[in-house]
Simulated assay, not measured.
Amino acid sequence: MRSALKWAGGKKKVVHEIATLLPSKGRRRLVEPFVGGGSVFLNLDFDEYLLVDLNQDLISLFNIIKNEPTKFISDAEKFFNGDYNQQEKYYDFRKQFNQSTDSYERSLLFLYLNRHGYNGLCRYNKSGGYNVPFGRYKHPYFPKEELKYFSEKAQKATFIQGDFETAFSQLRADDVVYCDPPYSPINPTSNFTAYAGNSFTDEDQKRLVGYAELAKQKNIPTLISNHYVDFTRELYKGATKSKLFQVQRSISQKGKGRVKVQEILALYK
């Protein structure tokens, strides 16, 4: 099932790779400290889900879809008529979003900006302003069925805004953890770790592995995704098991930059 959001680095195409390595036997709850667009949550079957993300707009949107699906879908659909698919209107709505303090209004605009903005990016400037440019799509898709499905599945989920430490601090014995952190860059020009106005550093990557090791000591398995580069090769050398595979990346504006890159899944169990 697709996410209702376009999401750079989304896991829809590689859920099967994740599922083959993620321990599920005897595990009732899936914990995701970086839920992002939610593709893993939507496509794996557990009794419960604890879904955390640093992005407050994302978590607010997910809670509103969970709790007010009929009203939200009806209100959101109005933003997907042809009159609103214009550059000037997009930037007006982006300005309105950045000035708004109402969580419901921001959620409606967040979905609009996500589907009309460039390439599924979610990016904020240092002042916290959403700054993704207009995407120039002919007919932005309104994800009505995806929103309905998300709302149904979300009844088993708890959504919390916070750092990944927030998720690890609430682990239970019957949990399994899947981490999709901002990836280590392939090269200096491909660094997209600036997320929700913050930067996810090498030290944060190391800190995440530390939490995975602590969870392992409590017999709670953790699976982590990342680019396979020199830094992560060294970072995950202590993993119980790892898996390499190739995935198509489409961040680059130029077609020739949309190439297959190698990723790693590192399991701590």
Rank of each mutant, 00 (worst) to 15 (best):
K66R: 14
P221Q: 01
N63D: 12
K12Y: 06
H16E: 11
G257P: 05
T101K: 12
F62H: 11
T193N: 14
P182I: 13
D45Y: 05
R2M: 11
T101G: 08
T193I: 00
D75S: 10
D230T: 10
S225N: 01
E263L: 01
F72N: 04
G238I: 15
N219T: 04
A157N: 06
A266R: 12
N114D: 04
L50Q: 10
N63G: 12
H227A: 05
E203A: 07
G82A: 07
I220H: 01
L21E: 03
P182D: 12
S169V: 07
D202N: 09
A8V: 08
A266H: 03
P181A: 02
Y118S: 05
Y118D: 03
N67P: 03
R27F: 05
L51A: 14
P33E: 03
Q246I: 00
I264R: 05
G10K: 03
K11Y: 00
Q253H: 07
S74V: 04
R123I: 14
C122P: 00
L61Y: 15
I251N: 08
A212W: 04
Y137F: 15
R233C: 12
Y124N: 12
P23D: 03
N63F: 05
K153Y: 13
F79M: 02
K25I: 09
A4S: 09
T232R: 07
A76D: 02
P133V: 10
T189D: 00
P182A: 10
A266E: 08
R106P: 12
G120T: 15
L108P: 09
F80E: 03
L61I: 13
K66W: 06
Q86L: 07
V40D: 08
E152M: 06
V40H: 06
K6G: 07
N63T: 11
P188M: 06
Q246Y: 00
L113A: 04
V261P: 01
Q253L: 14
K269Y: 08
D180R: 00
F62W: 14
Q56N: 13
V177G: 03
Y183Q: 00
D175H: 09
V14D: 00
P143N: 15
I186K: 01
G255L: 07
L208A: 01
N131Y: 10
C179T: 02
E213R: 13
G38R: 04
D83I: 05
W7T: 06
V132E: 05
N131T: 08
K71T: 10
E165V: 12
P133H: 13
I186Q: 03
A19D: 15
F142N: 12
F72I: 06
L51V: 09
V209A: 06
Y137H: 13
F80K: 02
E68C: 10
R258D: 02
E88H: 06
P221V: 01
G128A: 02
P23G: 07
K148W: 13
F79V: 01
Y137E: 04
G26C: 07
S151E: 07
Y104S: 07
Y118F: 15
K256Y: 15
L30W: 04
V35G: 05
K138C: 00
V247P: 01
H227I: 02
G162A: 00
D163S: 02
Q155N: 10
Y130E: 06
H139G: 11
L121F: 11
